[in-house]
Design a protein around this nucleic acid. Structure first.
Lengths: 244, 244
DNA sequence: AATCTTAATTTTGCATTCAAAATTAAATCA
DNA sequence: TGATTTAATTTTGAATGCAAAATTAAGATT
């Protein structure tokens, strides 16, 4: 999730008894927002394609009103580009913007690390340790997909441990941009081994609660990821990366 | 501006002649967005107040459709809180969130400094130097309002010199949150003098293109600003700060 | 045939309408 | 009187309607 924009169903009074599974009654606007965002990030809607309101309305069985609300929000997130009197297109995947996203993400991760070293509780540190074990397993098993899965979880725990909602929100926004490029696929064996080593250092620094060190490693981690991406892109011209 | 979400009037063909002053035909949605955002940041709409759609529609002479579109976007920016079936309120001014915003802003400024040291052109450096002079003048003249004006311009030049659109966008978002708290007013003479000194260091580091140093100073600058705010808030309980 | 008009069609931006929910006001009862 | 229903009113969320703009199609012109 990127950012909590609304509070749900305030009027559902349950006589003081909290229902175990409240029926999540999201507005159409909210549902569409999530659905469209996912479609763009997953690549179901490709960059630069025109967004056909009529088509999408039919697809989701809603009127244009909530759809258009969602599109405005997506535009403000940079996932969609509105062109006056010509509707919306899926935002072009701008390589310059993507490159720009990495150092920003690095800075935010660095801050997250510094704060997490201070605020993480024992459970969180243990959880990172546990996941680190799984990460190694995934590496050994050659399961790249699983590796990325676990990797994402680790970074999310650290982000959460930072106890900074503003950081969380902004990080989500950049992560959105980066994830959309989905170059998770191409990673050399060397780089993979290096990433594992970096993660070991991340865990160690967190356990030692060494904020400066954790911060530095995380920033470097991101820098290296960027280098990998650049290298892959340099090398893999034309051969469009597909996976994830 | 926070983020360019739309492209204007693509269809206005002028036979190859670029009109000197194109009539800015913003959508109602965009105009309302800017207007409401300003109203919230300026404090014209106070935190927690209910947003009366009918009232605002009458005020601006528009229907609810574009107004509601703007509200959804403002909600995604965190300036407005939507409550299901109860409409929108101006987002509460959450002190925890505000505190959280400072370190994030500090990190972003630090990155901006590092990048600006690399990418700033001569004109930009000269401009910061010129504004630095004005800053000192404002200080000498005791013009706090003017000081903040110039201060903002300096930071904007550095941000621009970083040549990183993602950084610019995110910075805008945090700045929004911080500006809304408008504690610019309360600043002790000591702190003011210190800020001036820090700005001198900022200029020097930029002129020397010392990214590390510039980065460190900017982060410290923000930290100090935060301390000032905290102190003021600690001291000035009840006595609501008023001014810009 | 290629270009330029002009008319028909579609799409967009916004206003209006409508049902469901929430709020307020009125009526009922202890 | 004060609490509790119940009914009337307002507000919200979303669908529909409509005029202006853009796109496409058709016809005219060279």
């Amino acid at each position: 999730m990127v950012h909590k924009t609304s509070i749900d169903t305030p009027g559902v009074e349950t006589g003081g008894v909290r229902p175990r599974e409240a029926i999540l009654r999201l507005s159409l606007h909210d549902q569409l927002l999530g659905r469209l965002r996912a479609m763009i990030i997953e690549g179901e809607l490709l960059p630069e394609t025109k967004i056909d309101e009529k088509d999408l309305c039919a697809r989701f069985g809603v009127s244009r009103t909530p759809l258009r609300e969602a599109l405005k929000v997506l535009a403000s997130e940079g996932l969609v580009t509105l062109i006056a009197h010509r509707g919306a297109i899926v935002a072009p995947l701008d390589m310059d913007e993507l490159s720009a996203a990495f150092p920003v993400m690095g800075s935010l991760e660095a801050l997250a690390g510094e704060l997490a070293a201070k605020h993480a509780d024992e459970w969180e540190i243990a959880e990172v340790a546990r996941l680190q074990g799984q990460l190694v397993d995934m590496h050994r098993g050659g399961n790249l997909r699983g590796y990325f899965e676990i990797n994402k979880m680790i970074h999310e725990i650290i982000l959460n441990a930072a106890r900074n909602p503003v950081l969380t929100q902004l990080y989500g926004q950049v992560a959105l941009k980066v994830r959309r490029a989905r170059f998770t696929a191409n990673m050399s064996p060397d780089r993979w081994a290096e990433a594992i080593a970096e993660h070991a250092m991340i865990l160690k620094a967190l356990q030692q609660r060494d904020g400066k060190k954790l911060s530095a490693i995380l920033r470097a981690h991101l820098d290296h990821k960027f280098e990998t991406v650049q290298a892959a892109r340099e090398h893999g011209r034309r051969r469009r990366s597909v996976q994830n």
